[in-house]
Amino acid sequence: MYAALWRALPGPWPLKLVITLVLVAAVFLLLMEVVFPWVTTLMPYNDVAV
Rank of each mutant, 00 (worst) to 15 (best):
M1G: 15
Y2W: 08
A3S: 05
A3F: 03
A4T: 12
A4V: 07
A4M: 09
A4R: 13
L5A: 12
L5H: 09
L5P: 01
L5D: 03
W6D: 08
W6G: 00
W6N: 06
R7N: 14
R7H: 11
A8Q: 08
A8S: 15
A8N: 06
A8C: 06
L9Q: 03
P10G: 02
P10E: 02
G11S: 02
P12N: 11
P12G: 12
W13P: 13
W13C: 01
W13T: 04
W13D: 13
P14S: 05
P14D: 01
P14W: 02
P14R: 06
L15Q: 10
L15T: 10
L15R: 10
L15D: 00
K16R: 15
K16H: 05
K16I: 02
L17M: 11
L17Y: 04
V18K: 05
V18W: 07
V18H: 02
V18I: 13
I19K: 01
I19H: 01
L21P: 02
L21C: 14
V22R: 03
V22G: 07
V22Q: 04
L23S: 07
V24N: 06
A25F: 07
A25N: 05
A26Y: 04
A26W: 06
A26E: 02
V27R: 06
V27L: 12
V27Q: 02
F28Q: 05
F28C: 03
F28P: 01
L29R: 06
L29A: 15
L30G: 15
L30I: 08
L30S: 09
L30F: 15
L31R: 09
L31P: 00
M32N: 15
E33M: 09
V34K: 11
V34M: 07
V35D: 02
V35A: 14
F36P: 00
P37F: 04
W38R: 09
W38M: 07
W38T: 11
W38P: 02
V39W: 09
V39R: 11
T40H: 09
T40F: 07
T40V: 07
T41Q: 13
T41W: 00
T41C: 00
T41S: 08
L42K: 15
M43Q: 14
M43H: 14
M43D: 09
M43I: 04
M43E: 12
P44T: 04
P44D: 05
Y45N: 14
Y45D: 12
Y45E: 12
Y45L: 06
D47R: 15
D47M: 06
D47N: 12
V48K: 14
V48W: 11
A49N: 11
A49P: 00
A49I: 11
A49F: 10
A49T: 13
A49K: 14
V50T: 09
V50L: 12
